[in-house]
């Protein structure tokens, strides 16, 4: 019974979350109030863990909740509930796209959509850059502009970019290396 309920709650979350990631938060708060499966403090913890582990945040949240309530089967059921709506909807949309791909209006729309996609990815890049290169907390305490910029991280970023452009290997290599550099430099 708990499995059915888990599946259903996360199915709803998957169905109504548009844009992914933190958009799942309001649904988790609602689920918390309704079911009491976890506490509000747990949600904050989940966000922190999700931000420090790879993978889509929604999937991380569903895994955590399902696992806490009903172990490994719970985690599987919750994630299954979360992704079911996406998979069904994308399969339908992909079929429609295939049929109308040569339609000139669909192509015109795609011309606008690709520009929008590029813009949204640029914004995501800016948001990560803000966290990676700025010390907001330190700056608000000291008020010194030199404290705002994490100089070490900025220099590391520039060097890494140059190396990446020159060598062009698999992104995984750079991610692993950057993790090690982060530990070594205590970034």
């Amino acid at each position: 019974m708990i499995f059915l309920q888990l599946y259903w709650e996360f199915f709803k979350t998957g169905l109504f979350t548009i844009g992914g990631g933190l958009a799942t938060l309001p649904f988790l708060y609602e689920m918390q109030a309704k079911t009491g499966w976890f506490t509000i403090h747990d949600i904050a913890n989940m966000v922190a863990v999700s931000e420090s582990t790879p993978g889509p945040m929604g999937v991380n949240m569903a895994t955590f909740t399902g696992f806490t309530i009903a172990g490994i089967p719970g985690a599987l059921i919750a994630v299954l509930g979360l992704v079911t709506p996406s998979v069904i909807i994308i399969l339908i949309v992909a079929n429609i796209l295939d049929k109308f791909k040569t339609n000139r209006y669909v192509q015109f729309a795609m011309y606008g959509l690709r520009a929008a996609s590029a813009a949204l990815i640029a914004i995501a890049c800016l948001r990560v850059a803000q966290i990676a290169f700025l010390n907001r907390d330190l700056y608000s305490q000291s008020g010194r502009l030199t404290d705002l910029f994490n100089i070490t991280a900025i220099i590391f970023g520039i060097i890494l970019y140059i190396i990446y452009k020159k060598t062009d290997r698999h992104p995984i290599l750079y991610i692993l290396a950057a993790g090690v550099v982060g530990v070594v430099l205590s970034l």
Binding site: A132, F156, A177, G182, V183
Partner: peptide, 11 residues
């Protein structure tokens, strides 16, 4: 620390 490094890489 590792995450701070990885974030730079993600940018």
């Amino acid at each position: 620390h590792a995450l701070a490094g990885i974030r730079v890489c993600v940018v």
